[in-house]
Amino acid sequence: MALRADVKKDVAKNIEKYEGRFEHIYLDTKGKVTVGVGHLISNRGAMAMLVFYKTKNNLPTTIAPTQEKQAEYDAVAKLPWGQQYGAATFKKSTNLVMKDANINQLLDRHIDSFYKELTGIYKKSKGYPEDFDNLPANVQLALFDLIFNLGASKIVSNFPTLDAAIKKGDWKKAAPETNRPDVSVTRNLYVKQLLLSVPAAAVTTP
């Protein structure tokens, strides 16, 4: 099965809200080179796999060769970073940009990898009320938010009360257990509301 289109659309919108969207490379708060919607570029070699464009009058023109992409990576990687430097401050130090289509492609890959993890965790055979694909859309959205933030192992091992409530399909009990101090009040409320909107043990089939 594939991830529902409406869920994927909302997940993409949310991730963009949490990570921002930048067509140029920048250094995150740990000094890691990043692009698009929070896509980490682990080393200069990884630039070869990404499509960047040269620009004229701030508009993308021709595809940049690997050498130029790696030179940009090297130049940005040397810049100061940290609490004073938001992603947008790196724009003036860059010459290359990604097009929306390429950014979306990376985001899709990101969502797909989390989707695979979610379908691996939430299975009826493992004691959950349904396989991930058959859980209500709002529950899927809430679980995406959690896994994107915490990672696969933490949502189960560090949130046992939440996990037990999910196994029972008790969304009302699960809702307050999703609270995380590392995310905003608005985001916590959004995830709680998603779960509270689903009737207890309501399981849908697509």
Binding site: Y18, E19, T29, K30, G38, I147, F148, N149, L150, G151, A152, S153, K154, R180, P181, D182, V183
Partner: peptide, 10 residues
């Protein structure tokens, strides 16, 4: 704190 396999940080 930074999650290594996710985006969480605190």
């Amino acid at each position: 704190w930074y999650a290594r396999k996710a985006s969480g940080k605190h």
